[in-house]
Design a protein around this nucleic acid. Structure first.
Lengths: 213, 213, 213, 213
DNA sequence: GATGAATGAGACTTCATTCAT
DNA sequence: CATGAATGAAGTCTCATTCAT
């Protein structure tokens, strides 16, 4: 039922020359996707921009979906790397400080890659079928869990898994929503601080009798 | 830069007969959008399903976008109405109870309209340019504010506007994300309760010195 | 396992205007098939020659195969009509005379439609999957049987069905083969007479003890 | 007007290694042709299956037609050899016995090579332009004439050449047609016997005054 | 000699939109 | 007003063939 995009290549480039070509095609696709309306990004234009024949593109990618998916997968990989690096730097903090650190980190990364995030979440029709994207929620939960192991230990949720999930969804969604669609009359830095604050409240509140039982 | 979809009709139906025709076209479009892959919803098919000639469709709508936008606008209107009704019924509750009530309400409505929500947020490429959709965040904030006036008064955020915005974004986003993409190994009711709980924590936490001061 | 070509039209022409268009397309296809190498007969060229847009072609035919199949079906229909008429005129003859009449008839028709016969039997790759073509053997047997009812009664084959089949295959194949590929050093009229003679021998021979038992 | 396929090789393999390579390419082509739909047999696939680079293929064959033609030529050569051997074993028989022997022989060979026969006669578009195929009728006539020299002498056709030609066409065509397209409701062995019987009638009939005179 | 990356003409097909009837 | 036949630009993708390495 749930189709998954095929990321495999028709032919794996063996020679250095071919590698360069494939790279050029992916770069071209990436640039065009970031520039033109999605439906204007045609395979012909990608090939043209990459400076290769359309036939070459189809030697390595079985169809249009495949190359777009590949590009998106790279984007996600890059962004996750950045997030990972940043999170790794935020250990050894108090709960509130950690919340702010994580939120700031995500905010910064999402903001810098605003265009790509929008493409993935709101433009490319099958983006959610791309494995790297479909796994994002889980990946992010795992990453922050690892990075914040010390914090997690201090938390004491009745259902840690559910709590982590909701916490991450709220964090991620509010950040992305703010970056992409924040009403202009609200000051972004303030929104950012508020998000962090709310996240902290949730974590702190955990110590209250309301939840942990 | 930010294009807005033209919802105006080429010609306003004057006769009763014409009104019925337009309605049939919108119903047909609505059904097809809910049924087929987006790219399979062609204007010709809409006309056919509505039992009118393709020419008639273009007498009332300037292009494909227009009729799709119109359909989406109706969807949004309907859903907002339901949300409004439900919220109105949840006054006079404690903070925690109110949080749970609101979350449950939204959950239920979003879940029932799952297909349409997904179409709006993840499928129809220009949905976010449709005024009714673009205004959704503000509208929801206002609606819940009105409905929960008593609660809002008991809250005491430093920046009420920012707080409301973030609160609503977190609520909305986590609900929608859960409805559309909740990992199967998490029990939905539990997720729902957790969301409500977290929202309550944020509101309750407000009384703590951590924030308001 | 045995695929059959779909001859149905995507849309049946309702208006007179549409009928004319479809006719033009079929005529154009027929002419091009009789003129160009098969692979050069493209749908675009057919539309161009018919003086219509390529889109119009695809309104009525789901694909290239369909229009080619339609053309072939018409060809077969026309030829069968001619054969039928000619056979009807050859009743009331002696066995030998009837054999000659039938062979002559078929020879004449096949020869006049030489180009089309070649296209059907040797060029169009899927011709044998077209119902009208696939049924040809049976159809021909039936037609000649009807026309030559009086003769058939005088024959007395042990297995009439098998005998008819073989008789017709031999007749048809030798005629077509001769028309299409007769070695130039053999005089065609003589070949024709020989074929008729051999067919007669088979029928006459039937009276010999060799077969009928 | 009548184009003939170029069977010549661009370069004649001089080294033993090259010979092996060419053989591999021909074998690969033969297997693919016998296995896949004709349009799926691409030069690239042939090279791949042969375990050589596509470039190598074009070192020895000027184009796709050439290699296909070469394959077909080999097929025909093989089949003719089998026919020859079989016919050689059927001398010294009575007319009727000889007819049955020849027909049986051809039937068996054609049936065993059914797939290749179909490819040659109904699938490969230019097969009839391949010399080996174009000469088949003459070749078969000559072969059976040689093999059945004693019989031929006993026959006494007015125009031996024409008679042989027609006799062979009828035999060949009815056999092939039966193997490839015999209606399922007819028992093949019976059809086979009937063919042989009819051929015998023709030959025997020769002694009757109807013809020879 | 062998390779295989690269090519690009051109095939089929779709669908939003127009306009004569 | 309504119709639906007609349009054609533009998209995806294939495959025989070349040529630099």
């Amino acid at each position: 039922m749930i189709r998954t995009i095929d990321l495999s290549m028709k032919k794996v480039p063996r020679q250095r020359r071919a590698e360069v070509t494939v790279e050029a095609m992916i770069d071209a696709a990436s640039e065009l996707l970031s520039t033109l309306p999605y439906d204007s990004v045609t395979t012909n234009r990608i090939a043209e921009r990459a400076g290769v024949g359309i036939g070459s593109l189809y030697q390595y990618f079985p169809n249009k979906e495949a190359i777009v998916a590949r590009v998106v997968a790279y984007w996600v990989q890059d962004m996750l790397e950045e997030v990972g690096n940043a999170l790794a730097a935020s250990t050894q903090l108090s709960l509130a400080e950690a919340a702010l650190a994580i939120v700031s980190t995500l905010f910064e990364v999402v903001d810098r890659h605003r265009v790509k995030v929008r493409l993935i979440l709101e433009v490319i029709p099958f983006a959610l079928q791309i494995p790297a994207v479909a796994n994002l929620p889980r990946t992010l939960v795992m990453m922050s869990a690892q990075a914040q192991a010390s914090i997690r230990d201090r938390l004491n949720f009745a259902r840690p898994e559910v709590a982590s999930y909701v916490l991450m969804v709220m964090t991620r969604a509010s950040i992305i929503e703010t970056v992409l669609h924040c009403p202009p009359h609200l000051a972004r830095p303030e929104v950012e601080r508020t998000i962090a604050d709310f996240i902290a409240r949730i974590m702190v509140g955990n110590t209250s009798p309301l939840v942990a039982a």
